[in-house]
C-alpha cells in the first residue's frame, strides 16, 4: 500500500467509525426521547389526578342545582349559572362568613408580623433574660401535639376572658403559630449584623427604634415567608373556628360554613351551596399561590426542615 492508499483507507475507516458513532448517538437520543415521553406520561397522569377533583368541583359549582346531582362523570356544565353563588352569598350567609374569614386572616397576620418578629428579634440579640429557656419551652410544646386535646381548656380560658368570639379565634390561631414563626425569624436575625443597631444606639436610638427602623425592614425576606404561612394557616383553619362558633352561626368562617352544610342532621346536603362556598375558599388562595409560588415553596422548605 502506498502512503496515499493508506491515507484513503484511514479516512474511510474514520468515516465508518464516525458513521457508527453517529448511529449510536442517534439511537441514544431516540431512546432518550422515548424515555422522555414515558416520563411525561407519568408526570402528566399524576398532574391530571391532582387537578381533577378540583376541576370537577369547580365546574360543578356553575351547574344548575338539579344537574349537580346527576351524571357525575360530566365535567362541564350543560348550562352555566351563577345562581349557586348568588344564593350562597345572599341567603346562605356566606357574605358574613367571608367577612369573618377576612377579619381572622387580617388579625392573625397583623399580630404575627409584629409580635413574632419582636420576640424573634430580642431572642436573636439575646436581650431578654432566660431567652434560651423561653425558646426551649416553646420548642418543646411543638412536640406534644396537643392541639385538639387542649381545645376545651382554651375555649374555657377564652370564655373567662370574654373573648370566645372572633377576637379569640385570632389570638388563639396566632398563639398556635407564633412558636415556629419566632424560631424562623430568630434564625434569620442572627444572620444580620448587629453593628447597625449598635451604631443607632450610640446615636441615641432606643430599642424600639432600632427594631422598627433598622431590623424590621431587613427582616423582609423572612417576614414574607411567615406572613404567607400565617395567611395559609388562618384562611384554611377549621378546628378552632369550628369550636368557637358552635353556638353562634353568625361568627362562622368560610371553612366552618361549608362544613356546617355537610353536617346537617337529616343528611340533606345542599351541594349547590357547598360547592360555591368551597370555591370561595379555594379559588382565592390558588390564585394567590399562582402569583407567589416562590414564597409558598420557601415557606414549606424552611418551615419543615428547620422547624
Amino acid at each position: 500500500m502506498t502512503a496515499t492508499q493508506e491515507q484513503v483507507a484511514g479516512a474511510d475507516q474514520a468515516r465508518v467509525v464516525r458513521a457508527g458513532q453517529a448511529r449510536v448517538l442517534r439511537e441514544a437520543r431516540a431512546r432518550r426521547r422515548v424515555g422522555h415521553v414515558a416520563i411525561y406520561v407519568v408526570l402528566g397522569v399524576m398532574a391530571a389526578l391532582t387537578v381533577m377533583p378540583l376541576l370537577y368541583a369547580f365546574f360543578a359549582s356553575f351547574k344548575p342545582v338539579e344537574d349537580i346531582l346527576v351524571d357525575g362523570a360530566r365535567l362541564l356544565p350543560r348550562e352555566w349559572t351563577l345562581e349557586n353563588y348568588r344564593i350562597a352569598w345572599e341567603l346562605g350567609g356566606f357574605d358574613q362568613y367571608f367577612q369573618n374569614s377576612l377579619f381572622v386572616v387580617i388579625g392573625v397576620i397583623t399580630l404575627d408580623l409584629l409580635f413574632s418578629s419582636m420576640l424573634g428579634f430580642v431572642l436573636a440579640r439575646k436581650l431578654v433574660p432566660f431567652g434560651n429557656t423561653i425558646a426551649m419551652v416553646m420548642g418543646g410544646s411543638l412536640f406534644l401535639g396537643m392541639g385538639t386535646a387542649t381545645l376545651y381548656p382554651r375555649l374555657v380560658i377564652a370564655q373567662q376572658l370574654g373573648i370566645d368570639n372572633l377576637v379569640g379565634v385570632v389570638l388563639l390561631e396566632f398563639s398556635g403559630m407564633t412558636v415556629i414563626h419566632t424560631f424562623l425569624i430568630r434564625a434569620f436575625v442572627t444572620t444580620l449584623p448587629a453593628e447597625l443597631e449598635d451604631a443607632a444606639r450610640v446615636d441615641g436610638c432606643g430599642i424600639w427604634r432600632a427594631y422598627w427602623m433598622i431590623a424590621f425592614p431587613l427582616m423582609r425576606p423572612i417576614l414574607t415567608t411567615t406572613t404567607i404561612l400565617a395567611f395559609q394557616a388562618s384562611w384554611n383553619a377549621f378546628q378552632l373556628p369550628y369550636v368557637f362558633t358552635l353556638n353562634d352561626p353568625e361568627m362562622r368562617t368560610l371553612v366552618v360554613g361549608v362544613y356546617a352544610l355537610r353536617a346537617t342532621e337529616d343528611g340533606s346536603q345542599a351541594y349547590d351551596l357547598i360547592l360555591a362556598g368551597a370555591m370561595l375558599i379555594i379559588v382565592p388562595i390558588v390564585i394567590l399561590f399562582a402569583f407567589l409560588q416562590r414564597y409558598f415553596l420557601r415557606g414549606l422548605t424552611e418551615g419543615s426542615v428547620k422547624g
Binding site: M46, A47, T50, V51, P53, L54, Y56, A57, A60, L69, V70, D71, G72, A73, Q232, W235, N236, A237, F238, Q239, V255, V258, Y259, L261, R262, Q269, Y271, I274, L275, A278, I281, I282, I285, V286, L288, F289, Q293, F296, L297, L300
Partner: peptide, 27 residues
C-alpha cells in the same frame, strides 16, 4: 401543580371529596 393541594384547606377538601365520592351519580 403537585404543590397545589397543599395550599388548600384540607377540611374543605374533605367536604369536596365527600361530594365527589357520592355513591349514586357521583363523580
Amino acid at each position: 401543580v403537585y404543590f397545589v393541594p397543599h395550599v388548600i384547606s384540607i377540611a374543605v377538601m374533605g367536604v369536596v371529596f365527600y361530594f365527589l365520592l357520592r355513591p349514586v351519580d357521583g363523580v
